[in-house]
């Protein structure tokens, strides 16, 4: 398959995370190629979010290796991961409710006129202009970008969070349940944004409970169960039933029919 010739963006080797006696993540071998959109599915506590926390530097793995863009990495914090071009849309949105859209987009990487350390003067005009541009690129319409996040709807908030990730991600976007709290219409908008990212060739890891959405959006589905990867199936060669069997443990992707990679 030609997809396998593409450059490997992210690879983990026996990635493991224990919280005391809880084995949240066990020997995960994961591969993501350039331009690929993959989903991570699994029941609650299957280790999906734990996996994301390890590869984004929010937590440090107990053991195992992470290779990103051709070299081994161990991110000490999310900033390092971000500096490598990984952007994450967290489940809890990670927006500051009392700030406006440009401030949120540039939170932690504010543009300034000149460097006075923490007392550097913000270049609001540039940040606002770029924020408007970023929203346009991602296809998000926010009537007033100077409005505070607090006054926005759930869909608008999610769109802002995704725009932020899409604007700054050069190599990989990770989304943890981006539509979990959204209505039908808002979900459709977020899905459209994700399709736009696919067109732009930005790799994506999507964590979702929504199998319809997963099969609709991604190329490959990685199934997790009790902290382990139990299968990776191509979207074209599978259906909802097979994925559900993998999630629930009725079937194992390694021994069964699923096209395990």
């Amino acid at each position: 398959m030609s997809a396998d010739d593409r450059k490997i963006i992210l690879r983990t080797e026996a990635l493991t995370k224990h919280y005391g006696g809880v084995h949240a993540l066990e020997a995960a071998d994961f591969i993501l190629r350039d331009g690929e959109h993959v989903a991570i599915v699994g029941d609650n506590g299957a280790g999906k979010s734990t996996f994301v926390r390890q590869i984004t530097g929010v937590e440090q793995p107990t053991s195992g290796k992470i290779f990103f863009d051709g070299q081994e990495v161990s991110f000490k914090n999310p900033i390092e991961a971000r500096d490598h071009g990984i952007e994450t849309v967290f489940q809890n949105l990670a927006l500051a409710d009392d700030l406006d859209v440009p401030s949120n987009l540039f939170l932690g990487r504010e543009e300034t006129y000149f460097n006075l350390g923490p007392f550097s003067i913000l270049n609001e005009r540039s940040m606002t202009q770029k924020a408007v541009g970023a929203l346009q690129t991602t296809g998000v319409k926010i009537p007033d970008v100077k409005n505070k996040i607090r006054n926005m709807s759930g869909g608008q908030r999610q769109c802002v969070a995704i725009s932020r990730a899409a604007t700054f991600a050069s190599k990989l976007i990770i989304m943890d349940e981006p539509t979990a709290a959204l209505g039908v219409q808002e979900t459709a908008q977020v899905e459209n944004i994700i399709r736009g990212l696919k067109k732009r060739g930005i790799p994506l890891i999507l964590i979702s409970h929504n199998l319809r959405q997963v099969l609709d959006l991604v190329d490959k589905v990685w199934v997790w169960r009790r902290g382990r990867i139990v299968g990776a199936v191509d979207r074209d060669k599978t259906d909802g039933n097979e994925i559900v069997s993998l999630i629930t443990g009725v079937k194992s992707g390694i021994d069964g029919e699923a096209a395990f990679v």
Binding site: F90, A94, F119, S120, I121
Partner: peptide, 27 residues
């Protein structure tokens, strides 16, 4: 002026608004 126009001010509000968000944003 500092709270309104500097990085310090913006981050002060950000931390009070959502400390977790501030943290994952690299502050």
């Amino acid at each position: 002026l500092i709270l309104r126009f500097t990085v310090y001010g913006r981050r002060t509000y950000a931390i009070g608004s959502n400390e977790q968000a501030a943290r994952v944003s690299g502050i």
